[in-house]
C-alpha cells in the first residue's frame, strides 16, 4: 500500500509557546504477543519492545510503545517500512502472534512548547505533570471522545495519535481552543 491516501490536514499552529504540527506519513504496526515469546521476538525483529506497560523506547527512526499487557505499537519512519514488513512477516510465521500493519489507521500530531500540556489537558484528563507522566511514558486514553495514543517525547513535547477519521475533528478542536487563547 502506498502512503498517498493521507487526508489533507495542514500544519495548523505555530507560536513561541505552542506549536501543533501534523506529522508526516509513518509506518505503523500493532503487535499482540504472548509474554513467553517477547524476548525471542525482540531478538528476531531487532525492535526495542519495552517490557513495562505504558513504557516506550525511541530510536532515530522507530518508536515502540507498550499499550497493554500483551499489546505493542510500533511507529516508524516510512523509510523503514520495507525492512519492517519483511522482518515482521517472518516473525508472524515463526511465532503464535498477531501483527497487523496499521500505517493508514492513525494520524499523528506533534504538540510542543511550554503550553503543550495545557492544550492536551483541555480534552484529556491525564495528569501531565512530569512526576506522574515522565518523558517516554505512552498511554492510550481519550481526548474528548476520541481514542488517542499519547507519548511524552520531551518535557514540553508530545506525540499524539488518533484514528484517521478523527483527524479533522482534533485539528478543528485544537484550532478552536487556540483561537480563544
Amino acid at each position: 500500500m502506498s502512503f498517498d491516501q493521507a487526508i489533507d490536514i495542514p500544519e495548523i499552529f505555530d507560536a513561541d509557546d505552542l506549536r501543533v504540527t501534523l506529522l508526516k506519513e509513518k509506518a505503523r504496526y500493532s503487535l499482540r504477543l504472548k509474554s513467553q515469546d517477547v524476548t525471542a521476538i525482540k531478538k528476531a525483529s531487532g525492535l526495542k519492545l519495552p517490557a513495562k506497560i505504558m513504557g516506550s523506547t525511541r530510536t532515530k527512526d522507530i518508536i515502540c510503545a507498550k499499550l497493554g499487557p500483551d499489546e505493542w505499537i510500533v511507529i516508524a519512519d516510512p523509510t523503514q517500512k520495507v525492512k519492517l514488513d519483511k522482518t515482521l512477516a517472518k516473525v508472524s510465521k515463526e511465532f503464535t502472534c498477531s501483527i497487523t500493519e496499521i500505517s493508514h489507521r492513525n494520524v499523528g500530531f506533534e504538540i510542543s512548547g511550554s503550553e503543550a500540556a495545557q492544550l492536551i489537558n483541555v480534552g484529556c484528563p491525564m495528569d501531565l505533570s512530569l512526576d506522574k507522566f515522565p518523558v517516554g511514558k505512552a498511554v492510550r486514553t481519550l481526548f474528548e471522545s476520541a481514542s488517542i495514543l499519547l507519548i511524552r517525547t520531551d518535557e514540553h513535547s508530545f506525540h499524539l495519535e488518533c484514528w484517521r477519521s478523527f483527524g479533522p475533528y482534533l485539528r478543528d478542536f485544537f484550532a478552536r481552543v487556540i483561537s480563544t487563547r
Partner: peptide, 14 residues
C-alpha cells in the same frame, strides 16, 4: 458491595 467486571476499554483494553 458488589463484585463486578470492568473493562479498561480506552486504556490497556483489559
Amino acid at each position: 458491595e458488589h463484585a463486578e467486571r470492568w473493562w479498561h476499554n480506552s486504556g490497556c483494553n483489559m
